[in-house]
Amino acid sequence: MDQEQQTIWRILQESRSIAVVGLSARPDRPSHEVAQYLQRHGYRILAVNPAYAGSRILGEHCHATLADAAAALQKEGAGIDIVNCFRRAEEVGAAVDDAIAIGARCVWLQLGVIDAQAAARASCAGLAVVMDKCIKIEHMQLR
């Protein structure tokens, strides 16, 4: 196992809560499938999507913003471990900045989502960064 795989394994082992930014209520969308998989494997999913705010996705209340999701989880005495971004690369910078602001431990940019500047900001702020990888695929390979 190389260094990157070891880091991913550690992140997945140590994390319990995953905010999914851009989570869709539509079961045919990748974000929904990935979040459902993670839920089945014991992770707490926090839905973040302003289009669905106030509704429920996968049995969880959907929040308009990452800050709203973090505040809700903080009331339970917990924080967000991973911010999993299902956003276009040109839109992901704002989600990364929000992840830094809420004190998340990791920013995970899904397969095909690459923003080196946003990743550098997160890394400089002390967050672990995984970019251009699917969290579901990585979890399946490391199990």
Rank of each mutant, 00 (worst) to 15 (best):
residue 72 A to R: 01
residue 50 P to D: 05
residue 59 G to S: 05
residue 64 A to T: 01
residue 71 A to T: 02
residue 74 Q to K: 11
residue 82 I to F: 01
residue 73 L to H: 10
residue 69 A to H: 12
residue 81 D to V: 12
residue 46 L to K: 12
residue 56 R to C: 04
residue 91 E to G: 15
residue 59 G to Q: 13
residue 69 A to W: 12
residue 42 G to P: 13
residue 79 G to W: 07
residue 47 A to G: 05
residue 43 Y to F: 15
residue 84 N to K: 01
residue 57 I to K: 04
residue 67 A to G: 00
residue 65 T to F: 02
residue 84 N to L: 12
residue 49 N to I: 05
residue 79 G to A: 06
residue 59 G to P: 13
residue 74 Q to Y: 04
residue 75 K to Q: 07
residue 67 A to H: 14
residue 60 E to N: 02
residue 65 T to S: 15
residue 54 G to T: 11
residue 52 Y to I: 11
residue 47 A to E: 09
residue 85 C to R: 04
residue 79 G to C: 07
residue 83 V to C: 07
residue 75 K to V: 09
residue 80 I to A: 02
residue 91 E to T: 07
residue 70 A to Q: 06
residue 77 G to V: 11
residue 56 R to G: 06
residue 58 L to I: 08
residue 78 A to P: 07
residue 41 H to R: 08
residue 57 I to T: 12
residue 42 G to V: 03
residue 42 G to F: 04
residue 77 G to F: 14
residue 64 A to C: 06
residue 81 D to M: 08
residue 47 A to Y: 14
residue 56 R to K: 09
residue 82 I to N: 02
residue 64 A to I: 09
residue 81 D to I: 01
residue 44 R to V: 06
residue 62 C to P: 15
residue 62 C to W: 12
residue 71 A to Y: 03
residue 59 G to T: 05
residue 45 I to C: 08
residue 66 L to G: 03
residue 61 H to G: 02
residue 64 A to D: 14
residue 80 I to C: 00
residue 67 A to D: 05
residue 88 R to I: 13
residue 88 R to Q: 13
residue 49 N to A: 05
residue 67 A to E: 14
residue 73 L to T: 02
residue 76 E to I: 03
residue 76 E to N: 12
residue 71 A to H: 08
residue 52 Y to G: 06
residue 46 L to V: 13
residue 52 Y to V: 08
residue 65 T to C: 06
residue 87 R to Q: 15
residue 83 V to H: 14
residue 46 L to F: 12
residue 61 H to F: 11
residue 57 I to A: 05
residue 81 D to R: 03
residue 75 K to W: 00
residue 55 S to R: 10
residue 51 A to S: 14
residue 73 L to D: 15
residue 74 Q to M: 08
residue 57 I to E: 09
residue 81 D to L: 02
residue 58 L to G: 08
residue 76 E to S: 10
residue 79 G to L: 08
residue 84 N to S: 07
residue 54 G to V: 03
residue 78 A to D: 13
residue 47 A to K: 05
residue 65 T to E: 10
residue 49 N to P: 10
residue 88 R to E: 10
residue 61 H to W: 07
residue 70 A to V: 04
residue 50 P to F: 07
residue 89 A to C: 04
residue 59 G to H: 06
residue 49 N to K: 00
residue 45 I to K: 01
residue 89 A to T: 14
residue 55 S to A: 14
residue 85 C to F: 00
residue 90 E to K: 03
residue 63 H to M: 00
residue 85 C to V: 12
residue 75 K to M: 11
residue 87 R to W: 14
residue 49 N to L: 06
residue 65 T to V: 00
residue 85 C to Y: 04
residue 69 A to V: 00
residue 55 S to M: 14
residue 77 G to Q: 04
